[in-house]
């Protein structure tokens, strides 16, 4: 159907693209540690060695009834429903920092169960709805 030149170009392009996709895949795979924005409490437990001078970002859900606010700091527990980690933080709290919603805390690990955060970010989910609908869902 196509001429010889056209066929050759199609072949050439598919070959280049295949190689390129493979390269990008391998690069991203090897950089996975840097591409992920945060790690879960379970992954903290599984870490081979903890670098106490390095900042870690830990993400998960704020455990229900775990937020403990006092005058100059807030303490809470991040859970991924398998493991948990306690976080202590002092500073500005984002608006959407709520129990049972996502959070990412960045700071230094004191040990595998305790993180002293210097920054916390709220991570909301993909659900959007009016307040009335949320109420109706709750009643169910």
């Amino acid at each position: 159907m196509y001429g010889k030149k056209v066929k050759l170009r199609i072949l050439f392009l598919s070959l280049i693209l295949a190689v390129l996709i493979l390269t990008v895949f391998l690069v991203l795979k090897s950089l996975e540690e840097n591409v992920v924005y945060f790690i879960s409490p379970s992954e903290i437990k599984e870490l081979g060695e903890i670098d106490y001078n390095k900042k870690y970002r830990v993400g998960g859900m704020v455990k229900k009834n775990s937020v403990n606010m006092s005058a100059d700091y807030v303490k809470f527990i991040i859970t991924d429903f398998k493991s948990e980690i306690s976080v202590k933080y002092s500073g500005v709290i984002p608006n959407l920092f709520i129990e049972e919603k996502g959070v990412v805390a960045e700071g230094f690990l004191k040990d595998r169960n305790f993180l002293e955060a210097s920054k916390i970010l709220a991570k909301h989910d993909e659900n959007y709805m009016p307040p009335e609908v949320k109420e109706a869902l709750k009643e169910k």
């Binding site: 591409v35 992920v36 924005y37 945060f38 993400g59 970010l121 991570k123 989910d125 993909e126």
Partner: peptide, 8 residues
């Protein structure tokens, strides 16, 4: 990957 951005 784990991202701060919410899923679709």
């Amino acid at each position: 990957w784990n991202t701060l951005h919410q899923p679709a």
